[in-house]
Design a protein around this nucleic acid. Sequence first.
DNA 1: GAATTGTTCTACTCGGCAGAACAAATCGCG
DNA 2: CGCGATTTGTTCTGCCGAGTAGAACAATTC
Lengths: 110, 110
Amino acid sequence: MPRGDLLGSLEYIVLLALVRLGPDAYGMTVRREIETRVGRNLSIGAVYATLDRLEAKGYVSSIVGEPTATRGGRAKRHFRIEVAGQRALKASEDAIRSMSAGLKRRWENA
Amino acid sequence: MPRGDLLGSLEYIVLLALVRLGPDAYGMTVRREIETRVGRNLSIGAVYATLDRLEAKGYVSSIVGEPTATRGGRAKRHFRIEVAGQRALKASEDAIRSMSAGLKRRWENA
DNA sequence: GAATTGTTCTACTCGGCAGAACAAATCGCG
DNA sequence: CGCGATTTGTTCTGCCGAGTAGAACAATTC
């Protein structure tokens, strides 16, 4: 087990997507959200793998909903960020913030 | 080769440490900087592994300097962030920013 | 049965981690 | 004043978890 335990980069992005999507968060929408926002096209397998890992850590939870009455509208597995996940998210944010604090100066002229 | 190619989480932190340390950046100082700033104790192996990977990608470069006349002051391997590395850093920053833009609201009450 | 929306499975590579081993310099004691 | 002890620094070994792509599978409506 790692010591500091920060989030992986995809884990981080996925958690943010969950916050952003709220109740509409499930595999496909998470993927779409990231692709359109970040401009990064990732495989659906990567998304679910990450989601599963986050769930195993207790950072997110999932429940399967009811099928919808639209063509192909099968039951979705909805994901929600848990308290532990929010803590992890903040921890990673803080780590980044503390490393980049007061760097603008050195940063611009290069 | 991955499509979007964002940085790993440690890669990100290490690059920031390089910017922060400037000419004083080498294995031991990078480690110390991260440990004190982020409060995460990581092994020296992890640091060098990351640094080597970043160098292989052309994101950083390294040169070995002269030994110093202090006890145990053997030659250091200095690391410097390259232009490609700065681009990668900005790209990751942007990815995070675009995902977290306008999230404060939803964020606080949970 | 065809098309559509969504999830799971398979197989692989790369990133992250710890700690020991190794290397090169100075210090200190006889 | 020489050679082992100490200090600073890097490389090596081995492992496990994260990330990736794409095919397979499932369930629903047209």
